[in-house]
Design a protein around this nucleic acid. Sequence first.
DNA 1: TCGGCATGTCCAATATATAAGACATGTGTC
DNA 2: GACACATGTCTTATATATTGGACATGCCGA
Lengths: 255, 255
Amino acid sequence: MTKAEAPPASERQSGVDRVVDIFEELLRSRAPVRVGELARRLGAPRSTLYNLVNRLVAADLLETTDEDGAVFFGRAIQLYGAAYAQTNPLQRRAGEALDRLAAETDATAQLCALRGNKYVVLDSRNGRGLFRITADVGVPVPLPWTASGRLLLGHLSPGDITALIPPEDYRLPDGRTLAPESFLADVARAREDGHCVTLGLSDRFTCCLAAPVRDARGRTAATLCFVVPVDRDEGERRGLLDRLRAAADALSDPA
Amino acid sequence: MTKAEAPPASERQSGVDRVVDIFEELLRSRAPVRVGELARRLGAPRSTLYNLVNRLVAADLLETTDEDGAVFFGRAIQLYGAAYAQTNPLQRRAGEALDRLAAETDATAQLCALRGNKYVVLDSRNGRGLFRITADVGVPVPLPWTASGRLLLGHLSPGDITALIPPEDYRLPDGRTLAPESFLADVARAREDGHCVTLGLSDRFTCCLAAPVRDARGRTAATLCFVVPVDRDEGERRGLLDRLRAAADALSDPA
DNA sequence: TCGGCATGTCCAATATATAAGACATGTGTC
DNA sequence: GACACATGTCTTATATATTGGACATGCCGA
């Protein structure tokens, strides 16, 4: 879907498709990029990109940074995103749920989903605790690194899962490599349990708790999750998990 | 800039420009729209819009609603918007300031700016008070209806201002019509004072306090504002205004 | 039952947007 | 100074995206 085609693509391409490529590249980069650099990364002609970027800047979908001529997303996109967050039923209701969860528990609460073959945070609220563990919305993360990843794949067969996940994604940030079979077992258990908890997985000091938001067909459309320090005791975790599951169930479509 | 061209435009048009038009129309509409309806509103050929919309849906920039085939912004746009909010210096720092202001005062705090010839809320935090006065991000509002509007026009001459604002925008929601000269005087005074307060302007029961965020040239690039019930006493308002001005000054570029 | 109106897909023709390259200008390195 | 490399603007051609219209289908009301 959002599989980037690398430089090789040297065919004449449609403007809209190029625009999509520009947006995806800017999301990856998370920082302003010069037009020439953008052309290089996309394997696109410079003249084309100048043309497109100028049009997008005029429409306020992109902005040029004052200092150098680098471009990034513009104000219009912010407004479009806000309109989406307010209008999309799941996103809106989840946002309210996150507000409550973060306020009541002082933990970081997030809405997560599958995007391509990665996990992304769609929305997030920081608890008021001292340790503000804050993950970036929209940054792709390997599925095996996360509790939510185990839930989001619940509807896939083991074959589909191994086909989806690139081998390098089993290597955790701390260098350990997860056995694919072990991950498949995690996915199966998460489906059984209806939740998933990881301790010190993506990072030695954090505990992730996740619960599935299901669509009308019972598949995991998204997850709600808490990110807390690992040192919280078993009872606290239990309480957080209960809240999380209740909130996720309330967001789920009726079976 | 974002001046919509109505149906008359029956020339052959570029795909990217059509895409921009689609986005702007969806922002205006704030609800999913059928493709045929979209074509009618934009004065564009149906076949073109089906082509473009299908491409945008595939790229996740748009989503089709399950029930009917209506389309609206998609998840990708949400991620782009979040990347903007996090990366753009003003937007990011303002977001943090809003967090603090809303948390400390239990009022609704907003970041506002000029977009075309209207006022828009760019970002907003609700106070925890009982009266959650919540304005929608991205909805265009006539400039004379707002305190921020008076600050945002500070760098324009009276002639520019009257040229910019359409006559109907002087008519307030309650039916009263504001004299343009009176509005010009308000703008001048707001510039003198370095802030603006309105009581029961856009709505009988709300008080708006606004302070300017200035760019390097001293022009008002945006405003911070509080929205509170009118019944707060003078002293409270004074305190809120002081906080607001301090926060706005901190966001302003060094003169 | 029929007619009117909508959606969504497909096709062929032509106006035009994409692409390639030249050009002027600026900048840092040797 | 000369060189290599970057940016941003223009111009021209040709591959193709946009467009108008036809078509199949479905829904609603008379």
